[in-house]
Structure formats: structure tokens, C-alpha cells
Amino acid sequence: MTEPLLVGTDLHKMYGTTPALRGSSLTVRAGEIVAVMGSSGSGKSTLLHCLAGIVRPDDGTVVYAGREISAMSDVERSALRRRDFGFVFQFGQLVPELTCVENVALPLRLDGVRRKEAERRARVWLDRLEVGDVAAKLPGQISGGQGQRVAVARALVTEPKVVFADEPTGALDSLNGEKVMQLLGQAARDTGAAVVLVTHEPRVAAYADREVVVRDGASLDLERVA
């Protein structure tokens, strides 16, 4: 087994008076796909937000590649998310006024890559996800399945170490959902990216290497118990 890449330990998070996480832990190794399952409101999205450094946990630590994310400043965490992480959400994630290729190029440009180069690399990824033909279109002009594939391309264009996917197929039908998962899984394996996949659909979770269940804000690694 490879070294752990991302380790969240005993994470707690309250939203107002509602506890979202109550001592959740998760370890992600380089290149593996981990499905985080649980019913709605179980805290699985919050766990993802904490692991990705979007949200700072109230208690507990998140360590990525030996550095403690939970102790970093907002600026450092932002830079980390730009360079080492990629994100796919359920919907509403593409900037509606940018074309697809500009959307995919955005993370590169945020990190200072020149526009021409960024868009060239974006096109390569659009082709890999079989949506090269919509490059010049606006997100409002393409289908939901195409939109999710553009989003996957955007998550992978920086060749991140970890991709965080929060219900990436939640708004899609089975066929489109399967396609997006196949492409995401394949692309992640090709680039060696680990994937943290939050989903409540078993068939989507089946694309992962292993499963973690979040119940009432605590995560259970069932396979380790078994």
C-alpha cells in the first residue's frame, strides 16, 4: 500500500447549532478512488469541504502530503486548491458567461498560465472527455451531461493530486451518469489522481476502489471492520 496522501482525523464541524460532523475521519491514498456514501444530511458534503480545505473544521486535523491544511491561512489553502486539487459539483458550477474552453482554462489562468497555453491544454482535456465539439459554446447552450464532462475536464486540467467530486452525476440520467463516471474514473487513473467521490448512489459508488459511509456526522470504514 502507498503512503496516505490526505488524512482527516476526528473532524468536527458545527453550522450554527447543527452539528454537521462529529468526529469523522478519512484517509485517502495516492491514486485511489474513495466513495463517501451516506443519506442526505449525514455530513458527507461537509466532510468533503473539510478535506478539501474549503471549510475549516472546528476540531480535528486535515493533513495533505505532510502539511496540515486545517492550520493554513485562507490564501495558502486557496493556492493549494488551485494547484493540487480539482473539483466537480452536482450543478451550477460552470461560469455561464464563459465558453466551455474558457471555463476549463480558468483554473490554469487563475494560477498564472498564459491564456493561449491554458486554452490549448483545456482543448486537450475537452477532447479526452469527448466534448471537444462544444469548446466554443456557452454552458447554457449544451446538455447537462456535456456540462458535467466539461466540469470534469476543468477539474483535471491542472493535473491535480486529488479530485473532489460532490454528487457529480446527481443531476444526470443513468446513461449520462455512467458515462461521466467512466470518464472520470479513467482520467483519474491515467493521471494518477486520487478521487474523493461523494454520492448516495450505489452504482456510482461502485466505480470507486472502496467505500466509506458517513452516518450522523461520523464516518465508518466498513471494509476495515469486515
Binding site: S78, R81, F85, F87, G92, V95
Partner: peptide, 13 residues
Amino acid sequence: RRLLAVLVAFGTR
């Protein structure tokens, strides 16, 4: 607001 949150997620300053 949702789009803004997404932009923040992937590290927009």
C-alpha cells in the same frame, strides 16, 4: 452565490 462558492472551491482569490 452558488457560482461564487464554486469559484472559491477551486481556489479563486
